[in-house]
Design a protein around this nucleic acid. Structure first.
Lengths: 127, 127
DNA sequence: GCTTGACTTCAAGTTTACTTGATTGCTTAT
DNA sequence: ATAAGCAATCAAGTAAACTTGAAGTCAAGC
């Protein structure tokens, strides 16, 4: 059982963000000590890291909320949760593809700069 | 010389977004007709598509602004502009790598769901 | 016993990138 | 001549995801 401070050190997420995620229902079953302070166990930490991965891949808070809601419903929602992950996987793959396509355009632009530099150098040689 | 309507049809960007981009200085030298209506030539269209590619790869408006500012300064800023593109290319590559890493985590989750389904099926067989 | 540091809650503020609404102008079809 | 369609400007509004500020609690150290 670790404190919020330690979770910020492990995950890099600021404490207010952890509280915000919890308030929004993205982090189920985080316990408290007698004084009302948050206590995170290994499972909580896994949730934080899972949520971080979903956020980093562009899943909106509202959708993660929905996922956690299903999780709390129990095992009967496993197919639906799996479906959500399959769908999200597809979207990540789409994002990656789009990034590659746009990266090509940047690379084309860079190639043009190389050509321009060569031409500028040729002009320098004339003088 | 085409109208804003045609640009929206070609690029998929709403007209207000095109006006907004122009106001923010992302689209240099868009001309007007006698009535004050925007007229886009091939170069303007290229700019729109280039800006779209930069935005789609996560470059903030402010940074594109800076790029266009350098462009307007003339050829002396070519090395700096090239540098910006090289830097941005690195960031896209970083994003792609991060997406792959997080995709792995999603795939791991999906593998767990497969295991769970198998186990659920086994339990069904018992009854 | 009092300060310091780490927590708590809650409301309000911030940032980024658009989007929408209100109003007006011009040109073409009825 | 009047409505429809496309355009313009400008200010204001929106959405999402945090972030910050204010005010208070609590345990440990001096």
């Amino acid at each position: 059982m670790i404190s919020i401070k330690e979770v910020t050190e492990i995950t890099g997420l600021p404490a207010p963000t952890l509280r915000y995620y919890e308030k929004e229902g993205l982090l189920p079953h985080v316990k408290r000590d007698e004084g009302g302070k948050r206590l995170y166990d290994d499972e909580d930490l896994s949730w934080v890291q899972f949520v971080t991965a979903l956020r980093a891949t562009g899943m909106p808070i509202a959708q993660i909320q929905q996922y956690v809601y299903l999780y709390k419903e129990g095992d009967t929602t496993i197919p639906e949760r799996k479906q959500m992950m399959l769908q999200h996987k597809k979207e990540i793959e789409r994002s990656i593809k789009e990034l590659y396509l746009n990266l090509d355009k940047i690379n084309y632009k860079l190639a043009l700069y190389d050509v321009m530099e060569t031409q500028l150098n040729r002009e320098e040689l004339k003088f």
